[in-house]
């Protein structure tokens, strides 16, 4: 039986359809990602699953409990890391965690044990008695993840857990979540609008305008694109173009920025052959595997909105519909 089951979920806010009939299942132990631009309906769906919102229609189950009829059962089996920081700045790290333990009905002894354990896991033990307001963004995130795991939830919800963090801290947070998952083995349900972050998932649902438009493994999604793109800069692009067509049978595309691009099935094997076969001097080669950016582009016909600018160059070359 799946740990999360969603059937035909619909949510309207004052006449605006935020979620328009979403259905999916998540198996126990899986890392499941919701990928989509801001306003696609990710947070709305998560809020319904976490019993913070009632759906307009449709059903949702977490750990076998109905999100509408048995909110208590759902609440005690989930942990949450929200988009925004939800720690109390006026309390110390330890007090924030203690608050959570008591809220979840743990005894004092059990709370102390779990708090010590989680401080160890997130590496914040030496700051336990410091006020949260003195923490950096990354430290606050780690503390929130620790808090979300204190009561050993079956499912950990991560709603844009790296929003507003710098790239270095973002990768730290992901590394940390990956390790944690190995240790604790929870089911993880996450949302993100960063393509690269979605790649850590076992399965990804691409959501846009309140609908799921694809739901598969990252590899599966990527293999639905035709192949790798090889970018070339040569001493004579005209000649190179003829040779690529004549000798190899590739159809190169001239890039506006100068240079050529070819789409091939296996870029790694093709590049050495190009060096052997071309008579023109190759000045630069760049291999680009299909990324989820490209997948999203293909599926929705538009680029991810609000994505940050640190993605490899040339990702738009996959072709716009």
């Amino acid at each position: 039986m799946p740990i999360i089951e969603v059937k035909d979920l619909v949510k309207n806010y004052n006449g605006i359809e935020a979620v328009r009939g979403v259905s999916f299942c998540v198996e126990e132990g899986e890392t499941f990602g919701f990928l989509g631009p801001n306003g696609a309906g990710k947070t709305t769906t998560i809020s319904i699953l976490c019993t913070l919102l009632s759906p307009t229609s449709g059903r949702a189950f977490v750990n076998g409990c109905d999100c509408m009829k048995e909110p208590h059962g759902v609440r005690s089996s989930i942990g949450l890391v929200f988009q925004e920081v939800t720690l109390d700045n006026e309390l110390t790290a330890y007090e924030n965690l203690k608050f959570h333990c008591y809220l979840y009905g743990m005894t004092r002894h059990m709370a102390e044990e779990r708090i010590d354990e989680m401080f160890e896991v997130v590496g914040l033990g030496d700051r336990r008695n410091d006020f949260v307001r003195t923490f950096s963004g990354g430290m606050k995130r780690r503390l929130e993840v620790a808090r979300g795991l204190l009561h050993r939830p079956k499912v950990l919800f991560l709603d844009e857990p790296t929003l507003g963090l710098d790239p270095q801290t973002r990768s730290h947070v992901w590394q940390f979540i990956g390790e944690l998952k190995k240790k604790e083995g929870n089911t993880v349900f996450m949302t993100t609008h960063y393509m690269d972050e979605a790649e850590v998932c076992d399965r990804i649902a691409i959501i846009d305008n309140g609908r799921i438009i694809a739901c598969e493994s990252p590899e599966g999604l990527k293999s639905s694109l035709k192949g790798d793109t090889v970018y070339l800069r040569t001493s004579d692009d005209g000649l190179a173009e003829k040779e690529l067509l004549g000798k190899f049978g590739f159809r190169p595309m001239r890039l506006e920025s100068g240079g050529l691009a070819i789409v091939v099935e296996n870029g790694e094997k093709v590049i050495p052959r190009l060096f052997d076969g071309l008579t023109v001097t190759v000045r630069a080669v760049n291999l680009k595997r299909p990324s989820l950016d490209d997948v999203f582009l293909r599926m929705t016909g538009k680029e991810m909105r609000d994505s940050n600018g640190d993605r490899p160059a040339g990702s738009q070359a996959g072709g716009r519909k």
């Binding site: 913070l52 208590h72 989930i78 808090r147």
Partner: peptide
């Protein structure tokens, strides 16, 4: 405003 209310609202308390 600072999100802390949600921490309470998703907890298994009435």
């Amino acid at each position: 405003e600072f999100g802390f209310l949600r921490e309470m609202l998703v907890a298994p308390v009435s």
